[in-house]
Amino acid sequence: MYLIKTPEGQQAFKERHADLSQRLRSAFLLFDGFRSLAQVLEATAAMGVSKDDVLALVSKGWLVQKEAPAMAGGAAMVAPAQVSKSAVPSLAPANVDPASTKRRYQQAYPVAVSITGGLGLKGFRLNLAVEAAMGYEQLAEIAPRIRDAVGDKAYAPLHKVLFAAEAE
């Protein structure tokens, strides 16, 4: 289950609502629609956040389940990063095995962090987006933003690692 913050939840967060304790605030921040409930619970287990705590946030209307993107253009919620996916024509072809995408992600991630880290404060949000990328697909979705920020020459090593054909 993937949860996202509601405007009411974000307002409660900003106002430091009493029902949103410090440990729940930490968990609340992690719900971005890209991390599953299990991943958030695992990340916050040391703080004592339980599934019941999260379900209480859902019952208050501060978190809602993210809807799957519509296949035929229906009225489902689509994250901005998913919209840019169509702007990247060279995403991994259907015949690329999962091991290859995992390997590409592992090789591309440090390159992307290095490139965006070199932007300083100008690229702070972009660097956060790269660090939040949990896999090949999410990193590939951010790639056009990186190219726009640094130019084609600086972006070339990342493009090669992400999208070049495997030489094996």
Rank of each mutant, 00 (worst) to 15 (best):
L3Y: 07
K5V: 06
T6V: 13
P7C: 01
F13I: 09
K14V: 01
R16A: 06
R16F: 00
A18D: 13
R25P: 01
A27I: 09
L29K: 12
L30F: 00
F31N: 13
G33P: 01
F34M: 10
F34N: 15
F34G: 11
L37Q: 04
Q39A: 06
E42N: 11
E42W: 02
A43P: 02
T44I: 00
A45T: 11
V49K: 12
D52F: 06
D52G: 06
D53Q: 07
V54Y: 02
V58W: 02
G61R: 04
G61N: 09
V64I: 02
K66F: 01
A68P: 01
A68M: 05
P69S: 03
M71L: 15
M71S: 04
A72S: 09
A76E: 10
A76G: 11
M77H: 13
P80I: 07
A81H: 11
A81F: 02
S84K: 03
P89H: 12
P89I: 09
A92D: 11
N95W: 11
N95C: 06
V96Q: 12
A99N: 14
A99W: 02
S100W: 02
S100H: 10
T101M: 08
K102W: 10
R104V: 07
Y105H: 05
Y105P: 04
Y105T: 04
Y109F: 09
A112C: 02
A112M: 05
V113H: 05
G117I: 00
G117C: 01
G123H: 06
F124W: 05
L128R: 04
A129H: 12
A129C: 08
A133I: 05
M134F: 06
G135S: 03
E137Y: 01
I142G: 15
D148T: 15
A149F: 08
V150P: 13
D152I: 12
D152P: 01
A156S: 08
L158G: 11
H159T: 14
K160L: 01
F163K: 15
F163C: 05
A164T: 08
E166F: 02
